[in-house]
């Protein structure tokens, strides 16, 4: 088991390095100019000076290695310094700086992460909480009315693009009924009952949409997995032994069916985070998705590079976690 994990980890490192280089190369080869958004009254020489000051004149490999050094060595050291209060090495070491705001990229991401995590996290939890019972009951009463309704709703949730549903919700609930705010307030801190309600109100629409999508996907897996297990011999044995129906379904079938679903849940996390790019755009939430889009538009390479790479890290990490979880939960699997 340990050797398997180590082997997988060892494979992840070259994959991630390759991806980070590929992203860098892709962005470097493309026509892109961070000075393009400046007002026209700024002369060409000033623009050239600025590009020089941003380090755009250096060769590709130099810039890539600089980014690697800043991201893999300086950032963790800074983090350690902040965490422990001790100082490691040169305190003035350069961090990965955004071209647009000249602020450390990691801090920008840290500022944006809470709202993304709040919305995505709660919608994922709600999605799972809905999906599991629906999936279990649908499979148990296969071809019943609940199953058909559930399948239909999950098919809808799976097929309706979030950008369409979001737009429709805004028209109805924000514009016509004026129930929910149209701008997400990131400065809101929950201090009491009233601010908590305000926070709830601004989260309702994005969370509903993401939760519907997540629930649709997970309940389909849960149902399929349940159906496979319901016809197993062990179920027949349990019934023959006189176990109650409730116990059979929940303790035997559902538990075994959770295995593949847990993997699916783990594997889904990075995708849900990436999918939040669209939801944030619709509901004007200033999260990491909005950061990515605005950075792409302003040609802010360090931010785009770092964010894209972090998404890749998340995917690799959760893949690994899913594999390990599978191994831990399913005694039949051995990793040798």
């Amino acid at each position: 088991m340990l050797t398997y994990c180590l082997r997988r980890l060892a494979f992840s490192v070259p994959v991630l390095i390759f991806i980070s280089f590929a992203i860098f190369l892709l962005m470097d080869m493309a026509p892109n100019d961070p000075t393009a958004n400046l007002p026209m009254s700024i002369p060409a020489e000033t623009r050239a000076q600025l590009r020089e000051a941003l380090g755009m004149g250096d060769p590709l490999v130099t810039r890539y290695l600089l980014w690697c050094k800043q991201f893999f060595i300086h950032e963790p050291l800074n983090w350690l310094t902040d965490l422990t209060g001790l100082s490691f090495g040169d305190p003035d070491r350069l961090r990965v700086l955004s071209w647009a705001s000249r602020a450390p990229v990691v801090e920008l991401i840290a500022e944006r992460l809470p709202q993304t995590l709040w919305v995505v996290g709660s919608s994922y939890v709600i999605g799972i909480l809905i999906a599991l019972p629906v999936g279990i009951y649908s499979a148990y009463r296969q071809h019943g009315w609940f199953d058909h309704l559930g399948s239909f709703i999950s098919m809808i949730g799976y097929s309706v693009p979030s950008f369409f549903l979001g737009v429709v919700m805004i028209v109805i609930f924000a514009v016509k009924l004026n129930w929910f705010p149209s701008v997400y307030d990131t400065t809101l801190t929950v201090t009491g009952w009233e601010s908590f309600l305000a926070q709830l109100r601004q989260m309702v629409m994005p969370v509903t949409i993401l939760a519907l999508y997540n629930a649709a996907q997970i309940s389909r897996y849960m149902r399929a997995s349940m159906l496979e297990n319901l016809h197993h011999d062990c179920v027949r044995t349990a019934r023959a032994k006189g176990a109650s129906e409730r116990r059979v379904v929940l303790a035997h079938v559902a538990r075994n069916s959770m295995l593949p679903v847990v993997t699916v849940i783990a594997l889904g996390i990075p995708q849900v985070l990436a999918g939040a790019i669209i939801t944030e755009q619709i509901f004007k939430i200033n999260g990491i998705g909005a950061l990515l889009i605005s950075s792409i538009q302003s040609g802010d390479l360090p931010v785009v590079q770092t964010l894209t790479f972090l998404f890749a890290v998340l995917i690799v990490l959760f893949n690994l976690l899913a594999d390990i979880a599978y191994g831990l939960l399913d005694p039949r699997i051995s990793y040798d």
């Binding site: 994959v15 892109n32 792409i296 538009q297 785009v304 995917i315």
Partner: peptide, 26 residues
């Protein structure tokens, strides 16, 4: 299969956005 794993590890949506934004005019 390693290649497949590698592609599965790509952050698809961000990558699509970056590529299209940067390359469409070329």
């Amino acid at each position: 299969m390693r290649l497949t794993d590698l592609f599965l590890a790509l952050p698809v949506l961000p990558l699509l956005l970056v590529t299209i934004m940067l390359w469409r005019d070329s």
